[in-house]
Nucleic acid binder design. Structure first.
Lengths: 195, 195, 195, 195
DNA sequence: GATGAATGAGTGTTCATTCAT
DNA sequence: CATGAATGAACACTCATTCAT
């Protein structure tokens, strides 16, 4: 996953995100994308091996943006629960903004990519959150009997899913605040010592 | 979602599940499916509006099968946690058996279907589990301060995701038993009163 | 061209005229027609050998209707020019009412039918008008140096074409009355002795 | 109607005229055409929006060829009747050479094209002949009481129809010379002052 | 690097037609 | 006569990809 960021690469990637948001991956043609990006048909293939190669690239782009923001805001968080709040809030925000492209990314495996690709994309996020959990364990902010690796992955997935459920599945039973709060409490109960 | 179960419909659906399991949706042609099903090309379109219409149909088929089994086994469960165990166990089993088709279904929204379709498919499962949760609340088996609707949806999603993570994401850090146990404890801590 | 007029035959033919008027021949499927006619798919083939067989059938239907009316009204015409006026008027009327189907019929040969079919359809019209012309010659109402057969065919074609030009080609330069009058004078000048 | 004449465009168009002449439009597949033209399947769609888009393109091609020749030969014509003779002769020739494709073109409206398309194709022919008629009026070669626009259109149509009737409808009653002569006299009587 | 004309394999879908009931 | 489920051949069209410039 080389993030060779040239001007054209970015143009194409952003155009792809836009067009796919509007039409869905299937109905989006390379022709649509290059037209929007303002480059030639062949130029696409200077930056992406194939149409399908877009999906992980988009995912990486969005996920690293999102992680960036989370890390930034988490700097000011003094305890684990504040960090958790930041993660939830930021994940909901990203999901709201990119909901149409995110269904692609969250379900990337529905497109025949090697797991390695996706592991690689999520690794920085997983690693960072494992670290957060480990520190929380040390500080007795969360219970000790956790498989940290499993918990990190599962929680990240759960948060993404809850957001997806809210924005895309359009739960009509709860408000945004209620959804986030319910999720927060759900996780807190599971992780934080009763007293 | 009319479950008009004619002989041909079933033949085609089962053939589709088989072929898609082997080749993935993209690389599966209608021709592949009808050949396997032993019907004519045009017959497919008597039962499915389009190729994409297969996805919700498959999802409904698998989910209702799975729910059937869960309900059956849950009959013998005396308390909430036993029921939870059954759900987890059965979800992992289904995911194992149909992993390649399930990525399609779990990520159904990546294909341009109306949410209504998916809501309708999941509704029986959601409804059943809401009922289970409500009874558990009554019996003080789980905490009272739950938004039952939200919790039902989220838990079902979480269990599916954990199974997907294990089988498809191929977690290498935990065994099957560990994964299920970790999940069980995670949910138990969040739902069951401390003592 | 057997005009075996059964109830279903008529239903199907009328339905065909309606649907083809709306969607054009190409985009009209047998399925559309039988649905409109309220009969079963297979029933169509009890009355028509194929989809293409509809075109001459429609043509015959419309042309014989039109000829019927012309003959009826021509009975009261005392001279050749009155008869000509009736032909023009009635042809314009039919063209107006069935313009969308008539393009099919007027250009029937664009569909691979044997000329014999079309000759047969037009024969009664040609024959009747030849007779009219012959009588007019006898009565010195038209010039003598005419090839009657050629003139009959050509005039019928010309009248149909002028009507088509007016209604379908949507001439914007003349009114309905002007178009008919211009045509009438055009033919009169060519056929009627100067004094 | 952009006559972007690139090499490939011409190759495809000529191939289409040939194949359609042999098999008719319906039974001609794009595959037939591109094989004959020696280009790839997809190349067809770089130059024609669809299969049906061939029809006006062919019509324009043939009509402009025909008009070219008429204009050329008409240069030497000293009076209106000579010009008329040229038109008739050339129209019969074109109809003879391209009879199978011309039925398509003469009946273009049977294919769902906008009238504008056909108006545009015929416009140069109409315009040229209107001019011819106007000059003839000035020179007292034809009668004054003509609606020139209507007459131009109608005469062009009539000539085309007479030729079609002769070659395609296979009149068996007259020879080529007789048919042309009959037509010429028919028009002459209608247009030229008696003395 | 950038272009965009050309490629041609690949496939979903339609629909006229048949035939067992 | 009537039905309508089943057929399966046939095809227009798309589009990811390449490559000469």
């Amino acid at each position: 996953m080389v993030t060779s960021t040239s001007e054209k690469y970015d143009k194409i990637l952003q155009a792809a995100i836009e067009v796919i948001s509007e039409k869905g991956l299937d109905k989006t043609s390379i022709s649509d994308i290059v037209k929007r990006a303002g480059v030639a048909q062949g130029t696409f293939y200077l930056y992406f091996r194939s149409k399908n190669a877009l999906v992980p690239a988009i995912a990486e782009n969005l996920l690293s943006l999102s992680l960036e923001k989370i890390k930034e805001r988490a700097k000011t968080a003094t305890d684990f629960l504040s960090t958790l709040e930041v993660m939830i809030d930021e994940t909901y925000k990203t999901t709201d903004e990119y909901r149409d492209v995110l269904v692609l990314c969250y379900s990337g495996l529905a497109f025949d990519y090697s797991l390695e690709t996706w592991e690689a994309i999520y690794l920085p996020y997983y690693n960072w959150f494992e670290q957060v959990l480990n520190e929380a364990v040390k500080k007795d902010e969360v219970i000790k009997q956790l498989n940290v690796k499993w918990t990190a992955k599962t929680m990240i997935n759960l948060i993404e899913n809850a957001a997806e459920l809210f924005y895309i599945g359009r739960e009509q039973d709860v408000t945004l605040e209620q959804s986030k709060e319910e999720l927060f409490q759900f996780l807190k109960r599971s992780l934080v010592p009763s007293m």
